[in-house]
């Protein structure tokens, strides 16, 4: 169709598979997937380790080891990183962190002197007493991880699907 040539052109501009971006590895950029179902708010964060640590290999120096510990400490305090609408009264229920640097010792053989990329995958589940009140989420990752420049978010809520790109100056998604 001749119609909407512009739309077509624009759709070409987009890289193919950008939805698979959840697995794409771009330094400085992380992805957060948000799903709200009934009372449970699922947050799935995947980020290149570089965005959070500044390096992507097993920590070698004392400084790097401290950095890893520091990163884990921050991620353990998810209620500081993610602030759902107050009125929804959400509390952190469970979370899990997954990254080669956190699995001490076991995966040493995979550490190829820092030339490989490595990610962090974290899942956080909040229980919300009043999920109907949940209309936005403030994300403070930028304050704790200065290496993080952009956060791509995708959300699926009872109000529909949405996507937004957050930056240090825009830290809130709403739906």
């Amino acid at each position: 169709m001749i119609k909407s040539k512009i739309l077509l052109l624009l759709s070409m501009l987009l890289t193919p598979f950008s939805t698979v971006a959840a697995v794409a590895h771009v330094h400085g950029v992380a992805t957060l997937q948000l799903a709200l179902d009934e009372s449970l708010l699922h947050l799935n964060l995947s980020s290149p380790l570089d965005s959070l640590l500044g390096f992507e290999h097993q920590p070698r120096t004392e400084k790097q080891k401290t950095a890893v510990r520091h990163m884990a400490d921050q991620l353990h305090q998810a209620e500081r990183l993610f602030r759902p609408t107050l009125a929804a009264r959400c509390t952190l229920k469970t979370y899990s962190l997954e990254s080669p640097v956190l699995e001490t010792g076991k995966h040493k053989e995979h550490d190829h002197e820092g030339h490989d990329h490595a990610d962090l995958n974290a899942e956080f589940v909040f229980y919300c007493a009043k999920p109907n009140e949940l209309r936005d989420l403030e994300i403070n990752l930028f304050s704790y991880f200065p290496g993080l420049l952009r956060l791509k978010t995708e959300a699926a809520t009872p109000r529909g699907q949405s996507a937004a790109i957050l930056t240090p100056s825009k830290r809130r998604i709403s739906w």
Partner: peptide, 20 residues
């Protein structure tokens, strides 16, 4: 295969078209 969340894809479309 490619699975797309329609709401997310539209949002991306607006991001691109937004410039135009």
């Amino acid at each position: 295969l490619l699975a797309v969340m329609p709401g997310v894809a539209l949002e991306q479309l607006w991001q691109v078209i937004g410039v135009a």
